[in-house]
Computed example of a mutant assay.
Amino acid sequence: MTQTHYYSNPAGLPPQTDLLTDRAIVTEAYTVIPRGVLRDIVTSVIPDWTGTRAWILNRPVAGGATTFAQYLMEVEPGGGSGRPEAQHTVEGFVLVVSGELTVTIEGETHVLAPGGFAYAPAGADWHVRNAGAAPAQFHWIRKAYEPLEGYVARPVFGKEQELEPFPMPDTDGRWRTTRMLPVDDLAYDMHVNIVTFEPGASIPFAETHVMEHGLYVLEGKAVYRLNGDWVEVQEGDYMSLRAFCPQACYAGGPSNFRYLLYKDVNRQIVL
């Protein structure tokens, strides 16, 4: 089985002796939220959830990414929600990074450990509980679903460690992508992948494309090229990229560089 690592946020607050300087950046092309600013004081309480707090990493804003919201959720033992999604038009994807989370979608129940994931179609009956003895942290990506005539998105459950990554061409497998939602089914209007770079591997050109991205670094470190700027990132950091933001990276050692990636796909541009 593939060895994997999933960073989980320790939160807390920095001591009064710390300097204020950090790596947080907000531009119209991209946003970088470093792990050092994901503290207790910036958490949100979500209606219909108990024993839960959330770090909201992305929401649609003018001049930024507009197609999705992304949360880092922490649920205490016994907490959860019988109605996690209040909007019937919104689909959801969760990836557990620490602890265990029991997820039920349309009557099918799975206990998700780190690397476990689930997709809930828009309008699905689903709920989540932490039945374990320790807090559970997971990523929750929400998107307004764009229906397509003749296609139906269905629930998906899985575990990253059990999936075969797809190597990128001409990279000797040193840049590879683990695809957690069906990529050849037009019923799904978003892809959620885990991208892995071995130390020294790179995206060797500035990708400039219509898809928006949310990227949460699960392991390792790298230098990212974003809209002409060089930005250092490490595990626990988050990047939100608007459409057409030029992007490339070099992975730095000693471990693999891995991130959770969202992108919107498979739909005509609405004018």
Rank of each mutant, 00 (worst) to 15 (best):
D22A: 07
A133T: 04
R59M: 09
T89N: 12
T50N: 06
W55V: 01
T104W: 04
T66C: 04
L38H: 01
Y119G: 05
T17S: 13
A134H: 13
P10V: 05
A118I: 07
I56Q: 09
P60L: 01
G116I: 09
H139E: 04
P114H: 11
W55Y: 12
L13E: 11
S98D: 15
T52K: 00
A122V: 02
G132T: 12
G79D: 10
T89C: 03
L112F: 12
L20N: 04
P60F: 00
V90F: 03
G123S: 15
P84H: 05
H139C: 03
D48M: 03
T66Q: 09
A65Q: 08
L112C: 02
W140H: 13
E74I: 01
L19H: 00
G80T: 02
T21S: 14
L101E: 00
Q87S: 11
P15E: 01
W126K: 01
G64Y: 02
I46M: 13
W49D: 13
V61S: 05
P114M: 10
I56E: 08
R129K: 09
M73D: 12
G63L: 02
V61G: 02
A69Q: 08
G123W: 15
A86P: 03
V45S: 11
D18K: 13
G132M: 08
D18Q: 13
H110S: 07
G116C: 10
R35F: 00
V42T: 10
A69P: 05
T66W: 00
A24G: 15
A11W: 10
F117Q: 09
G82I: 07
R142W: 09
G123A: 14
V128Y: 08
L112G: 01
